[in-house]
Design a protein around this nucleic acid. Structure first.
Lengths: 205, 205
DNA sequence: TACACCATCCTTTAAAAAGGGGATTTTTTC
DNA sequence: GAAAAAATCCCCTTTTTAAAGGATGGTGTA
């Protein structure tokens, strides 16, 4: 039996590429594609794909949001996230919101087919590279910061010294020092450079 | 007369996509593709494409380097840079190193053909979005870093101290200090925190 | 109300980074 | 082959941060 496949991606080349790669596959039934989240949702009102390949970067909303919406409305549809290699920080969010797989856009034909078959069996599929990237510190273990800590963090990133921040925030320099201390602890960072790096990765900056 | 076209991109989907889009074009002669810089250079030893579509992210070296090499050896080949939208900081560098055009990977068939025809006439072609992004000062003026500077930058971001880096890179701590100094100058950063922040924004980290 | 958490302030010591010089060798570029 | 850039090394001084203590008042909630 054929797997009904749908694709959401605003990159024409990617859509054409996947179509070209899969058009001769007997087990794949190409339902069509959408260039943005809106037209994907419209399509789903009248059609029922079994698997959706979904870019995490769409023009109208993020793939993460779309993923969530589709999962809430049509829980039976298996979603496979698609991205280029440098956007892997979103993988875990995608998976949290109902995606069952994750593919990089340099995937081979065989990888795509394996991913589709795997999620159809109800199992998760992560590309090797995606799985590796998952091990990197991500938003998953982002610490909870207080209002003041976020404020100080951002000023540190702008290059201000404790004295300057103290002046700007009308507190003592030692107070800033305490906030810094807490930031280093919460992020488990060795020093300011590592702190800013982690904070940037975790989208605080 | 047909335009001889070659593509370098490590994203199979993109190659398949472009191939699918252009295969019915009477004016395009599809010479083939390469997945990395090395095999592109090998190909060029024995074949002469007129236009190369080149991804700026390749597995073995950056598209910028490849662009430079190809331009030096085969100045008559017109190079069109290819990228997804979030890597536009490299456009100007690509153009500096001999590229004549820049396309985003969500380009339509018509845009690709227009780009190819435009560069064949000896004119530059920038996609509208690329041209817009060029105007943004933020990412555009990312400094050019040396190999060593990039290395040190990344180690700083990991939280290493000068002494640790010196040890790791088998150089004196004062050397690391000099690299740091240059990094601060190039990024025009007040201190390390600001440096890492800027570097992260400019996709160095 | 008691407890956790936040924000504030303090001291001291040691380590690291910033800022200012200058210098040499190798590699790249013109 | 000369000029420019990169990578390496060194000095000195000052500023800034890190680390490790402890302390106080306020707020929100269980």
């Amino acid at each position: 039996m054929k797997t009904k496949l749908f694709i959401v991606d605003d990159h024409f080349m990617v859509i054409e590429g996947i179509k070209a790669m899969l058009q001769d596959e007997p087990d794949i039934d190409w339902l069509g594609h959408a260039y943005n989240a809106d037209s994907c949702l419209s399509f789903l009102k009248y059609h029922q794909p079994e698997v959706i390949l979904m870019d995490i970067n769409l023009p109208d909303k993020s793939g993460i949001e779309l993923c969530k919406e589709v999962f809430e409305k049509y829980a039976s549809i298996k979603i496979i996230g698609l991205s280029t290699f440098n956007q892997l920080s979103f993988i875990s969010k995608m998976l949290d919101h109902g995606a069952m797989g994750y593919l990089l856009k340099n995937a081979t034909k065989q990888e795509i087919i394996t991913a589709i078959n795997t999620v159809m069996k109800g199992k998760n599929y992560l590309s090797t590279e995606a799985a590796n990237m998952m091990k990197k510190p991500s938003i998953a273990d982002a610490p909870t910061l207080t209002r003041r800590e976020i404020e100080v963090l951002q000023l540190i990133a702008e290059g201000m010294t404790n004295a300057e921040m103290a002046n700007k925030l009308f507190v003592s320099a030692t107070t800033i020092d305490t906030h810094r201390k807490h930031l280093l602890e919460k992020f488990n960072a060795k020093n300011t450079a590592a702190l800013i790096h982690l904070a940037a990765q975790m989208k605080y900056l």
